[in-house]
Write a protein that binds this DNA or RNA. Structure first.
Lengths: 139, 139
DNA sequence: ATTTGTGCAAATCGTTTGCATCTGA
DNA sequence: TCAGATGCAAACGATTTGCACAAAT
């Protein structure tokens, strides 16, 4: 199963014109082995080191950007200090817990958006992002 | 009319417990004199300097944060490395033009959101942000 | 052998902070 | 007067980049 995932990632990397290097495969494993994830570069770097794959921070940055260009993951626009990467590329939206900087998926089926506006001339809609910001309930 | 705006801003500043200093009034004028705006700190700073009010960058940062706390403006979480401030605090959403880092208001009436999901236990919804990302149409 | 990726450290960029000086009430 | 505001420069954290070395084809 780990093997299976590894092969799949190698294939996906090749398909994207990326050499399946040790580091990229390891990062890909960490990203995709556990279902949908929302990670910062820092977090993934720590996981990689903890998993015995001592990649450098710079490589994690490079790799995540390459994965993003390849469409394997996407960037989340929740808050501006840190960049979050989402391993789920399908159409879905997010909760963001303020103060805790935590991102959660919103189950797809719940949310609908109606009356999408016409984009300005010469523009088309690339993506619609909904972020529901949460705060702890007063008590 | 400029006078009127200035008085209003002084009043709003006082109401928020902020001394209406030369710099805050000038920045407030720039922010609110031209209708709804989406600005970065850098942009506002340049405008101020161009308008003959040589505030420091640090003061622009401080001031925008204080205005935000006072509820006069709000922070936009589009994506990008920079923080955008919105002078329109009412409930509305945004277009974001990719590559150009430009923010536009979506006219309120057009967009509806249905079936808002239940927030997780102990949480409540603070705010719902919709960002429609635009790209230039292929030709 | 050639091309591409990696690691490190230095560089960059947006933002924040410490502290001495100034200003509004 | 004097708490609060400002300006500067230094500090900071996230991200990027340049370049020598290593790995993949």
């Amino acid at each position: 199963m780990a093997e299976e995932a590894e092969i799949a990632i190698e294939t996906r990397l090749r398909g994207a014109g990326l050499r399946p290097t040790r580091q990229r495969i390891a990062l890909g494993d960490l990203l995709f082995a556990k279902g949908d994830r929302h990670l910062t570069v820092e977090e993934l770097h720590e996981e990689a080191v903890a998993a015995g794959v001592p990649v450098s921070l710079a490589t994690v940055y490079n790799t995540l950007h390459q994965f993003t260009e390849a469409g394997l993951i996407r960037v989340l626009a929740v808050e501006s200090t840190k960049t979050y990467f989402d391993t789920n590329v399908s159409d879905h939206h997010h909760f963001f817990i303020e103060g805790q900087n935590e991102v959660l998926d919103i189950p797809i089926s719940n949310l609908t958006i109606g009356n999408l506006p016409e984009p300005p001339k010469g523009m088309e809609i690339a993506h619609v992002d909904v972020v529901i910001r949460l705060r702890r309930t007063q008590r």
